[in-house]
Nucleic acid binder design. Sequence first.
RNA 1: GGCGUUAUAGCUCAGUUGGUUAGAGCGAACGACUCAUAAUCGUUAGGUCCCUGGUUCAAGUCCAGGUAACGCCA
Length: 584
Amino acid sequence: MARHLITSAIPYINGIKHLGNLIGSQLPADLFARYQRARGNDVLFLCATDEHGTPAELAAAKAGKPVADYCAEMHKVQADIARRFRLSFDHFGRSSSPQNHALTQHFAGRLAENDLISEVSERQVYSIADGRFLPDRYIEGTCPNCGYDKARGDQCENCTKQLEPTDLIDPRSAVSGATDLEVRETRHLYLRQSALKDALNDWIDSKTDWPVLTTSIAKKWLHDGDGLRDRGITRDLDWGIPVRKGTEDWPGMEGKVFYVWFDAPIEYIACAAEWAEANGLTEADWQSWWRTDKGAEDVRYTQFMGKDNVPFHTLSFPATIIGSGEPWKLVDHLKSFNYLTYDGGQFSTSQGRGIFMDQALELLPADYWRWWLLSHAPENSDAEFTWDNFQASVNKDLADVLGNFVSRITKFCRSKFGEAVPSGGQTGAEEAAVVADLSERLDRYARFMEAMEVRKAAQELRAIWVTGNEYLQSVAPWTGIKSDPDQAAMQTRFALNLAHLFAVISAPFVPDASAKILTSLNVLEPIWPADLQEFLYTLGPDHPFTVPDVLFAKITDTQVEEWQARFSGGQSRKGAEGEAEALS
RNA sequence: GGCGUUAUAGCUCAGUUGGUUAGAGCGAACGACUCAUAAUCGUUAGGUCCCUGGUUCAAGUCCAGGUAACGCCA
């Protein structure tokens, strides 16, 4: 039995994610996890909320709540939506957990011992009124280049010129509008990633089976310009993991916290510790997934993420792990996705553009979204969501091809033979041909799923559904029953077993529909078809079943028009990044 | 500005290391069937593979230059 450790990029805490976020990491990760479980493998599938940093603080302030309370609430909201999308996390953790505090401090300590941490003095803008240092993007002022009065400290959005906060004319705090700003000296820790450049390069070179998208991004960061740069791992904030060297104080770092990018990926590990605690397991149990000296040498670790997250997962996080000198598991396979676009532009949290997870579920059940998103996953390039395409795909694939097949065969059987699998007849050449065809297709489907070729897997799965309709159309039991009832009974029995097959193998894509079909067919313990020939005899004569309700209602033109208007962009969820409107 | 990705049928996309008449699904037209969610199944039509030039016996595929779209720039 293979062991699969699977993590999805962890979503930021400050609001509900949109469909682009969903298909970029969590959903394909779930598909893979469900598939591996269905094949009988041992799976630990982890995800969490990424809770630290300035956006969380500001979102909490806006909501008028202490940041810890805000994060706890938003974590529940996100967990609930994930559950409703049937994301089958073994644990949905929090980067603010005690486990992550301890591990982050531990890693920092190890890195310091290995001389991979340096201390750098920096000058940063401090807002006296706010009582805090301001990150560059939270300073606003007039652009010295074009005169735009809402330029940010890192860049002017009007003329796109890159700026330093000190370039701004009449700078003010974007948090409070305060103008009493000053530049203060502050000391920060840097991770000396540059010292690990060769180690990282060798490691990435050893990954010959990674997607081009992944390696090209990693290589660019490694070799572009001056090469891999050292990165600050601390910030002058209140909300975060206090800077400590393992369990000891870190002189000169009092009152500072780790920068969110440093502690967030460590949550992948800490989340396993949270999982163990939540399930009454021991440290040895979770370490058997993460420590190659404690049982994880046979674990295959796969990460899922959007392309914007690739540098962190190929360089920064591995630098932390390699730099620790301890035998933690490094990622084996890394599956990255491009963006889903909406009406030609990006989905945007800050501009409220596109469809958000909670809104999607108000319109239609999870399976509809899961199927469309997965079968159109932005694997090789950006993919575009349009309502017309969504309607056409879902109606055709789910309602007409799969749903209608289950409906037609169960109803036919009920009307001619009653609600039990009919007996009589012997399978012949026609059925043997279907078995041969399906065996080949099932094999391809499995290979695509193993390789995480999501779109191709969906395409193959759909072709398998079509096989069922082809078979019925070809043998036409509704005609044959008049002259040879035994033959028609056998054909009906065979087709009911096909419905069973479809339910079992479709579960990773459309878990709810799959469960409904299995319930109707009275199958309590679905088992993946190892031997197809044998599997298609699972439902034998007299096995009772019921006709399921309509599995997938079609999306009407009226609905599409209404939704198109409602989500025409910018109206549904306006506001700056970090707003808590999603909570209401 | 630098860099990256992409460009194939009306639409959404496949096209392995260069190798016959460039493929699939949807949509369209026509036909078959009537068990089924007016669903299904079959047949057919539809392409200057963004442009220009180059390498080669052979280029959708490799190289150079251009054009356009999208993205990233810590």
